[in-house]
């Protein structure tokens, strides 16, 4: 179980994370959804021992992230937002060094298996700098999974990737979940959160403003949306709780085309924050 309790982090006068709390169950995929600068990466850095929180606590499978950092590092795998592979080392060397750092037994087999899992066996001896963006991401994921971590952190795993590679990554994450791993990922892609996460936490300006399953969150703000172009040329959206309510609302609009549809996470985000996620 992962438990985050009232963690905060400030950089000068900027409050990057403001008293955030949430709990993850074993085998759960949890997504932190929010725009750039919402504090997602800072939360991941605090949970993975890279950044010391100013206040609050965080524990992973009962181990305190600050006081028992070394033991926490044994059970987590991290896919950072930036590519932090050694560019001048091959894929195999990158994984071999990581396996040694994490004292993985039978390194050769573990590395070969990790490369096969992300379909990079044929490029094992190529330097990482020669890889495409998608291949680098897959290698980062293979590295994070190499030491069989119990909890995996993925910071914006599919940022900048084309849709096909993104779906390949989703498959890898789904397989990790089937293997019983607990997964925490950050994203600002609505469809990624909807496709992968059992529960989602919505972050805005460092604060966690809502947590729940996608359906729960949608239900909270309304399952249906009525939308139309207003007199000033701007899109007007109303979230309501039933189809009937949505259609009744549509009847009241005098002119122009009115759409009634089911709500999605983006509607939830807009309703809760007043902002559109970019």
């Amino acid at each position: 179980m992962v438990a985050v309790n009232e963690i905060s982090k400030c950089y000068g006068t900027l409050v990057a994370v403001d008293r955030v709390s949430f709990v993850l169950g074993r085998g759960e995929v949890f997504g932190l959804l929010g725009p750039n600068g919402a504090g997602k990466s800072t939360i991941i850095r605090m949970m993975t021992t890279l950044t010391a929180p100013d206040a609050g606590t965080c524990s992973i499978n009962g181990l305190d992230v600050i006081r028992e950092a070394s033991r926490v590092k044994e059970i987590i795998g991290v896919v950072p937002q930036e590519n932090n592979l050694d560019r001048e080392l091959s894929a195999r060397e990158n994984l071999d060094i990581y396996a040694r750092l994490h004292q993985v037994g039978d390194r050769e087999t573990a590395v070969a298996r990790a490369l096969a899992e992300v379909d990079l066996s044929h490029r094992a001896d190529d330097l990482a700098r020669r890889f495409s963006g998608g291949m680098k991401r897959r290698l980062l994921i293979a590295r994070a999974l190499l030491a069989s971590p119990e909890v995996i952190f993925l910071d914006e795993p599919s940022i900048g990737l084309d849709p096909q590679i993104r779906r390949q990554l989703w498959e890898i994450i789904r397989r990790a979940r089937i293997d019983g791993k607990t997964v925490l990922l950050t994203t600002h892609y609505i469809e990624e959160a909807e496709a992968l996460c059992d529960r989602v936490g919505i972050l805005a300006k460092g604060r966690l403003i809502a947590v729940g399953s996608v359906d729960e969150l949608k239900h909270t703000v309304g399952d249906y949306v009525t939308e139309y172009i207003g007199p000033d040329g701007r899109l007007v959206q109303h979230t309501v709780h039933s189809r009937e309510e949505a259609h009744a609302l549509a009847q009241t609009v005098d002119n122009g085309e009115v759409t009634v549809r089911r709500s999605n996470l983006e509607d939830v985000f807009i309703k809760l924050t007043g902002e559109r996620i970019e």
Binding site: T48, L50, S70, L101
Partner: peptide, 14 residues
């Protein structure tokens, strides 16, 4: 710049 130092810091070694 390369952020590879973070891999060392996040490894379970002293």
């Amino acid at each position: 710049y390369f952020k590879t130092f973070q891999v060392l810091v996040q490894a379970p070694i002293p």
